[in-house]
Nucleic acid binder design. Sequence first.
DNA 1: ACCGTATTCAGCGCG
DNA 2: TGAATACGGT
Length: 800
Amino acid sequence: METNAILEGLNPEQSRAVTTIEGPVLIVAGAGSGKTRVLTSRVAYLLEQGCKPWEILALTFTKKAAGEMKERIAMMVGPERARRVVMGTFHSVFIRFLREYAESLGYPKEFTIYDQSDSLSAIKACIKELKLSDNYKPKDIQARISKAKNDLYTPSAYGKSPDFTSIDRIKKTPEMPQIFALYQQKMKNSGVMDFDDILLNMNILLRDNTEALEAISGRFKHVLVDEYQDTNYAQYLILKKLAKNPPHNLCVVGDDSQSIYAFRGAKIQNILNFKKDYPGCKIIRLERNYRSTRNIVDAANSVIAHNEGRIPKKCYSDGEAGEKIHFMRAFNEQEEAMLIVSDIISRTRSEHAQYQDFAILYRTNSQSRALEEYLRRKNLPYMIYSGNSFFDRAEIKDLMAYFKLVVNPNDDESFKRVVNLPARGIGATSISALNECARAHGCSLFKAAWLEDHELYGLRPAAGVKIREFCRMIDSLAALSTKEDAYASAREIADKSGLYAMYKADTSIEGLARVGNLDELLNSVQAYVEEQQSLAEDSDEQALVTLGGFLEDVALLSNADTDDGEDSSNKIALMTVHSAKGLEFPYVYIAGAEENLFPSMSMLASAQDIEEERRLFYVALTRAKKAVSVSYADTRMRNGKHESNSVSRFAREIDDKYVANPLPKREFLDNSDDDDQEPTRFGFGGRFQNRYGRNEYGRSGNVQYFKRQKPAAPAPIQAPRSTTAVRQTNVKPDLIDPNFVAVDMSELYVGERIEHNRFGAGKILEISGMAPDMKAKVDFDKYGVKLLILKYAKLRPEKS
DNA sequence: ACCGTATTCAGCGCG
DNA sequence: TGAATACGGT
């Protein structure tokens, strides 16, 4: 592609961003400013200037971003050259480097990756081994270890850092350094890294191995980084080392106003301080927004102007003024859902909008429920972007654990997961004995299985035999997997392990679904093999597509990448503001614009946190192309409690000039936090025609005031339905009416026909024991005779 | 090994 | 409130 063609259609700033190729460059790319286009054009331009593809390193955060860039570069310069550009996510690119030098770091070349759940189990194992109290919450420990690694603290550095140890003192977890150390030790014994280790070890490599540093940094003449505002300290330092050679051709692109990942270690200072870190750098601002109307851009500007720590810039749109922002006030989250959905319906009619043109954004995932319920009620197609991926399912994890174990037999977490699945008579006792043995020898469970001194740790010979049998099976599968491709190996593993047969034996509906999922996993292995083979055909080398490759590919997938095969065409999108980053929609609804929720106050510690929340609100606003509606509810059920909060300060910060129905100057409802003394307002809806559902509500007399009352104490015991009512463990014993118990028990008698939730109908044969240990022998029509403890079994008289 | 119940927790989530 | 995990009994 000719230089002219590359630059065609770029505005002057974009053009400068593409052609300023010498020395460090910071491109401050406002929302919707054509950032991806600039990045891809820049790569094309570098190639056009004679740079070799393999001398360019381009790093992104997500697989999706990397994929999009690859595709667009391929269109500009052709697939052969595009393929040779070193481009990918931080993690995927660094894994490649780490494999080259794995041994110098004390890892096997074939190290595998622990995902978060593997890592969590390993942490639980550490806590257990150190016999620590339940002050030590595995999730919390995991988060703190992750934070430490992102800031490049090793366990010993952690122990010496007052920052960490003082928090541990407060949290009553003084043995954090020991857990951290044991965890790292375990990981090394198992030949595995977690996601943070990839960055940590990359730093260690570049710090301690000069040869590696020179080789890797010498390989690249140009380093490009997307979303620089989201980099953490570990990534920051790696980049610094990769760009150490003059003239330091490091080009970073980002927007400080969209830095929203501080909670997972991102440092906005990285972008704010770029100028200081790279003296003489060039700063290019992309301030023209091609996405949104003027009103939206100006409204977003008026909000973000309240932040102090910013790179000065003036974002603007040359488009039409467009619609003003609408506020929608609701009584509760159900009504909020109704207002939003009604608005969507009316816009589909009045503006011929498609469902896919709408996005409903919220701060927390739990807000999706009310919206979802209402959308379902109205039969509208929608899609929730979040969480549970295919790979979280138990049966998938089981088969994946076999794959992982075959690729890396020292993976202890996978070993523990499948050693007795299907049942092989290897119980918890045997495994904990084996674990003791492994711990004493500082080796993996798999290696410990072959040692001779089991008995010292209490492992019974019979159990030892069974464990070794299992290990031999893994060994033979491993041997096979070096000869066969990933798909053949995967099939063999599913078969020989007995796992597939085990799930196949379950003929229930769920069982069938599980087998279907296993098939789907095998299909995806096959798809991976075919994809890799077609890539290899284009190039010269024809290597075996290994199962290890598949595992790595999957490990580096995110939830966002795995769409459970659901068809996303023409559906209303529901997602958190975080996951909306980088996306755009004609119509955007921001739900739950309330104090305490957005901004979320749960963990708000410093003034900087409120700025991060404000940036998040900014991100939400700037997703919209044509229209934004901001909704809030007077009361909302949160964590099982009713909460009343006033309108979000961010909503108020939108300049009235850009709002269709500005908020009253002082809110009617003060910020009373569910205090029983305060009057709480509840609305009773019914009139929802008002398109913008604004402040007439609540003012027009359709509001009831009442004082929330504490429930009468003691709480009345509910009318007995069955013997299960006796089991009121939350009620103090003296609150149970003894008469009630007696009466209740007498409802059951020998010969009576009853029903059970799971076993269905049956007849009582015998009643034995005294309350609360009273038991009944029941002959179920379908399941035969069972002895049930009445305290636990929910029996009710048969309906006739 | 599996069931039902008790208890606990509650934020956003890249790779 | 309700989901996820831990526990404890057969």
